[in-house]
């Protein structure tokens, strides 16, 4: 099922259970598949129109009044457009606002460069008291919602709205917001991945396996705070790593892991990420190839470290 539909279904459940939950969006209720919620809970769903700054600060006001606002817009407008509102109204004021950024990085596809955020994780990660989460599939998203609700702080969630990806088995997936998910155990190289790059990393795992290289695939769904224990334990074993993310190479997961490793256990680390470029229109397959966010790039970087 599309991620946005999973999200709407889970939100419906938590809104039924918890009257403090309110939803605010900036003229994207239809795009986010939230229209049913607006009909079912008209008193707790608000549309500010095309006014994201106002949305962020209104959410902070509602949070200060005891509500738990979930706010929605596209990733660039959920982050770079409203940096200061997130910093001051939400984080500095210690307000519990859940920010959902739709269509991170190349998943903005035909909306193109203006809507394609390659810097959003860097922006949010550099502010104190923030949490950054990106589910890689619908199961993770489904399992995360209650934890996001109960998490007593601001959290930024990147959602590939129309993504229809299944990585995990619902009956066999233990999800903890604060713990990275080890998908494949390995001993030769660590591959840290997040969001849409998890699928690519798993393809790379098979290619590397055929070359007798044992890769450890770890999904870093929560980019801040990092599960440093799991990451360090993996690189202490493999002594090298590739980081794959749908984001600029500056400021995102690659940066975060390099920071952690540099201070605690320096090893060679390579990236599969956007080469400090802006976005453009195109379908997902074209954009993956153009920005080299592919299985092949992961394999190439892994081989360069292993050999």
């Amino acid at each position: 099922m599309e991620m946005r539909k999973v999200l709407a279904a889970e939100l419906e459940k938590i809104m039924e259970e918890n009257e403090k939950v309110v939803i605010i969006n900036a003229d994207l209720a239809k795009a986010a598949a939230l229209s049913n919620l607006y009909q079912k809970f008209p008193k707790r769903c608000f549309n500010v129109g095309v006014a994201e700054q106002n949305m962020a600060s209104i959410a902070a006001g509602l949070s200060s009044y005891g509500f738990i606002p979930f706010i929605f817009t596209f990733t660039p407008f959920a982050t770079r457009r409203i940096c200061d509102q997130i910093a001051v109204s939400i984080c500095y004021s210690k307000q519990n606002v859940k920010i959902f950024g739709l269509d991170p990085g190349i998943t903005a596809t035909n909306n193109g460069g203006t809507h394609m955020s390659f810097e959003d994780v860097g922006i949010i990660r550099s502010m104190p008291q923030t949490t950054v989460f990106e589910p890689c599939d619908e199961i993770q998203l489904k399992k995360s919602l209650k934890q996001i609700l109960n998490y007593k702080s601001m959290i930024y969630v990147r959602i590939f709205r129309k993504g229809n990806i299944k990585i995990f088995d619902e009956n066999n997936c233990e999800f903890d917001l604060m713990k990275a998910s080890i998908i494949k155990n390995g001993s030769d190289i660590s591959i840290f991945c997040t969001g849409i790059m998890v699928e690519e990393a798993l393809k790379a795992y098979e290619v590397l396996k055929n070359k007798n290289i044992s890769a450890e695939i770890i999904d870093i769904h929560t980019i801040k705070p990092l599960d440093s224990k799991t990451i360090l334990s993996s690189i202490k074993k493999t002594k090298k790593a590739v980081v794959a993310e749908n984001h600029n190479k500056f400021g995102g997961l690659f940066s975060a892991i390099c920071e952690l490793a540099a201070e605690n256990f320096p090893v060679p680390i390579k990236y599969v990420a956007v080469e400090d470029e802006f976005g453009q229109v195109g379908n997902l397959e074209f954009l993956k190839k153009y920005y080299k966010l592919t299985c092949e790039s992961i394999v190439e970087k892994a081989l360069s470290l292993v050999e």
């Binding site: 600060s57 209104i58 902070a60 006001g61 009044y65 509102q85």
Partner: peptide, 10 residues
């Protein structure tokens, strides 16, 4: 001011 609007809504 936006926060005040949010509080009034709350």
């Amino acid at each position: 001011f936006s926060c005040a609007v949010g509080i009034a809504l709350g």
